[in-house]
Nucleic acid binder design. Structure first.
Lengths: 229, 229
DNA sequence: CAACCGCCTTGACCTTGATCAAACCTGCCG
DNA sequence: CGGCAGGTTTGATCAAGGTCAAGGCGGTTG
């Protein structure tokens, strides 16, 4: 139970649960499960019935789709503090729409859809939070479709770099990739070879400096112009 | 008011409002506005503040994005009975994420976000319906990303044809395009020329027969195989 | 410390679908 | 009925990014 108390902190911190009172949080906490996954372990697969949703508290979870030929498209990398698969509980079929797999040793919490739904019924506030969450996801997907159809690979990559930049612009504009490049490439719908070549070109042109997993954005001005045009 | 009574029928028919009682429906109805748009008229633009959402009762509304160079990507064609922009009310920025434009003379109803949100606060049932709606949209977007990144233009086009097929398989497998081909092409993220060529190839191979806006699916068997592999 | 393994990079070549340009329909309007 | 306009088709060419193959570079492990 001390374990669970520890985990409850994560609940209070997440906006999804912020609309619940102490009793409701207790209900959630007493039904949540902690689980840990070794690197490479799969949590669920596309098409499996979905009864729970998840929060990452440590590590990284890769959400992805597979084509019939086995090609992989990474939809999202979920990081500590973030929830996933919570929108599935309202879908008619109620099966996971993607595969989920640990990129590294990870710890998660899982929550019963049924119980959470029960609480939602008495908490319009929580409903609104969840809807805000879904609305934001919808918007992110729209932007991805936009950049896939209206823009090219360089645009997507530069956009990614700029989004990865920490909020406060004052600190040094360096990004340290915490995920293998080929996974980021897949997320941006670029092949690893092309990903590498674009980084190459950007550094040849003096926009960035690459040293392994570290990318320094040398010329923010020109990088920003790259995604505006 | 007879007009509004007429329009109220549309409300009762739409699942979004199905969770509301008579009083609540009356509130909605008394605040809804009817508007009509001539062909080519724009309803709203990407980035404009969003205070209302809409239902089409006649005609077709094109939702689309524009690139900086003016290229257009059609996100969706909204047809009679369907609502749109209702997810926007929960977004932080509350601006329309797309442009909306009438493909032909159209009639719409519009509803105040604020008032609907007020009703939602007392109707968990309606919240759940809206969440089901958003969840379904999320899933549709995911599938679009999937088919953009993991599949080719032919797959998308054949998939479209099969989805357009009426439910009951018994009737003749003919599709009549009610939207200009270049608009459908954009929806599928294909250029008009390529769209035309793919139709050409499919009919040369005996899978379909094209006559203007009519497409007869001659060989459902092989068409289905096309999207499975 | 050597060997191996996974990941990344580099080079040569290829394929899909885009682009550009012209012809072709079809419906509409004067 | 002639001509014009929008949408569609067709043909020739092009380019972005994918594929295939080989090499390099760490990092881990026995």
């Amino acid at each position: 139970m001390t374990d669970n108390n520890d985990n409850s902190l994560w609940l209070r911190r997440n906006y999804l649960f912020a609309g619940l009172n102490d009793d409701e949080l207790k209900t959630i906490a007493s039904n949540m499960q902690e689980l840990s996954l070794d690197e490479g372990r799969t949590l669920f697969e596309h098409g499996q019935p979905a009864e729970r949703f998840f929060m990452v508290i440590e590590g990284q979870i890769k959400l992805y789709r597979l084509s019939e030929e086995g090609d992989e498209k990474v939809i999202e990398i979920v990081r500590p503090g973030e929830t996933f698969a919570e929108a599935v509980m309202f879908m008619s079929g109620k099966v996971f729409p993607v595969n989920a797999n640990a990129l590294m040793k990870s710890r998660l919490l899982s929550f019963s859809n049924a119980i959470f739904k029960g609480l939602l019924r008495n908490s319009p506030d929580s409903c609104f939070r969840l809807m805000a969450d879904m609305s934001q996801r919808l918007h992110k997907r729209l932007n991805e479709i936009d950049s896939l159809t209206l823009h090219n690979a360089t645009y997507r990559l530069v956009g990614y770099l700029l989004r990865e930049l920490p909020e406060d612009v004052l600190q040094s504009p360096e990004i340290v990739l915490t995920t293998p490049k080929h996974v980021i490439a897949s997320q941006l719908s670029i092949k690893p070879e092309t990903f590498s070549r674009i980084l190459m070109r950007l550094s040849r042109d003096g926009l960035i400096v690459v040293r392994g997993n570290s990318i320094v954005l040398e010329d923010l001005e020109r990088l920003r112009k790259e995604v505006e045009l």
